[in-house]
Amino acid sequence: MHGLNFDVAHLLAGSLVLVSFMMLYQDRLYALLNVFALHAVVLSASVAWQAYIHDAPHLYITAAIALLFKAIVIPIALHRMIVRLGIHREIEAVGSIGPTMLAGIGLVGLSMAVMLRVTADSDLLAREDLAFALAVLLLGLLIMVTRRNAVSQVVGFMSLENGLVLAATGARGMPLVVEISVAFSVLIAFIVIGIFLFRIRERFDTVDVQALDRFRGERR
């Protein structure tokens, strides 16, 4: 039975990384949002599975929060925001896909190399989970770095936070209060960023962050 538990957890965490890779090369905003919703669904499934095998009912709540907010509320809100901003047709220059994917693969390799060595004496499941979580986190950062559109940077940030949640549930014993507060802080960050998006839009007529740089009169 242990083997099955482990395998399913491994599969779910691994697919989270895979979905992160999918986010890397989405150059349309709607597609990016859809993949992000998928990311959140996979996260929620992974957390729920952890709850099941560790017999920790409070993790179900975490999974529910992830499903509700990250897979439904936030994507829909971002969707509407994109419509209102009128940027749904924009195609973002992601940079060439090949090098970005290669960098992503390198990051996954790095996180495996670090985590599997550092946590040599903890149990197998936690090790794999932590390694995958670090990979998701780094990929989220990579998304933020390679994008120029503020909306897709928000999405990168959210996926980074998914990695944090995965790590927290894998580490077993993170209290519910902390999880709820993390969820709420992310929600608040989302709201704040949303407001800022509209402000930026009002001022500069675009949400391309390059406009901000141009406004500051910086050479690039």
Binding site: L138, L141, L142, V145, D213, R216
Partner: peptide, 16 residues
Amino acid sequence: FLTIRRYLSLVFLALI
């Protein structure tokens, strides 16, 4: 006086 993306990249690089 760097751009936001440069700052993010710096943080990212430092982490890596």
